[in-house]
């Protein structure tokens, strides 16, 4: 029994690593369709990763060891985060090591390392990207925490698997605060994953870029790992969203068997397809904000999350 749990945990992580680039590719494809462009293949991210891994790494002369280790740390933290988030099943032994707050801490660790690495070379773009990333980060983090707090108050736990279990115990009752939390969460997701109202993942050498500015000095396998980590981050955020707001199909504690697992994989894929096209739609419909509108956007996300908390206190299902 114990062994099966660990295997399942391991399998979930491998699945996350494997399909995260696919999710990013799907979003890119949807965006292209919606904007009447000819779409790249869904598997484009895999091709890019393969190409990057086979190239020689070009490392700036001034790069310190911190710069070289950061891609591995980024990838490591994101894989670890994937191990905590119940995307397929709530029966995760590793999830006991880190609850939702620790998960936010893990994302923060990745962000700090990436920013430090960006400052390491000492170019103008790198440090500008670093400070903007940290700015987005310190506004998004409290908002995300409030969203998770809201869920914790509903189900009396900060551990993500317990949240899903708690939700599945009363599936018919939707707490009114969830609407606020969901809106706030989507806003945080867009900001944290360098999506369009805040940052454009497809841009290069613009004065407005944030995420790409930090990666300018990375190449080959280092760049591949950083990119993979950002795919994983997007995937993780999507899975947090599923766990908090639409946890249907996740195998809850105590349900075993191949059928349940297959069902949960199908459910996850279905949700990813829908979420990916929804994200692409949002990105297509909205325009990129000026950099100093970004705090406004995130302040709004934060206030909505807090409002959700208040609404829960007033109207919450008891």
């Amino acid at each position: 029994m114990r062994g099966i749990t660990f295997i399942r945990q391991f399998g979930e992580v491998i699945l996350a690593i494997a399909i995260a680039p696919l999710f990013a590719g799907w979003i890119a494809q949807c965006r292209a369709w919606m904007q009447s462009r000819s779409a790249p293949l869904v598997t484009q991210p895999y091709r890019m990763l393969r190409k990057l891994f086979s190239k020689d790494a070009a490392l700036a002369e001034t790069a310190s060891p911190l710069f070289r280790i950061t891609p591995y740390v980024l990838f490591g933290t994101m894989v670890l985060a994937a191990a905590i988030i119940p995307s397929l099943a709530t029966d995760l032994p590793f999830a006991r090591a880190a609850d939702a707050i620790a998960l936010i801490g893990l994302f923060a660790t990745a962000r700090v390392f990436l920013s430090l690495a960006a400052m390491d070379i000492g170019t103008g773009f790198g440090s500008m990207g670093a400070r903007r990333e940290m700015m987005i980060g310190f506004l998004a983090e409290p908002a995300l925490l409030m969203v998770l707090f809201n869920a914790s108050l509903l189900y009396g736990s900060t551990a993500l698997p317990s949240l899903v279990d708690g939700y599945r115990a009363h599936p018919t009752i939707i707490d009114p605060s969830v609407i606020f939390a969901a809106v706030a969460f989507v806003m945080v997701l867009l900001a944290e994953n360098a999506r369009i109202p805040i940052d454009n993942p497809a841009t290069h050498l613009e004065l407005t870029m944030i995420h790409e500015a930090m990666l300018l000095e990375y190449s080959a396998r280092h760049l591949a790992l950083v990119e993979w980590a950002s795919y994983l981050k997007l995937f993780n955020y999507a899975c947090i969203g599923f766990a908090l707001f639409v946890p249907w199909g996740i195998a809850i504690h105590g349900s075993d068997g191949g059928g349940v697992l297959a069902l949960s994989i199908v459910a996850l894929l279905g949700k990813l397809v829908v979420a990916g096209s929804a994200l692409a739609l949002i990105e297509t419909l909205s325009a990129k904000l000026r950099i100093f509108r970004a705090p406004e956007f995130l302040a709004m996300a934060f206030l909505l999350a807090v409002l959700g908390l208040l609404v829960h206190l007033l109207l919450g299902v008891r």
Partner: peptide
């Protein structure tokens, strides 16, 4: 009552 609560929350939103 749940749906009503939900609608009330939407109004505030």
């Amino acid at each position: 009552i749940n749906v009503l609560n939900l609608l009330a929350a939407c109004l505030l939103l």
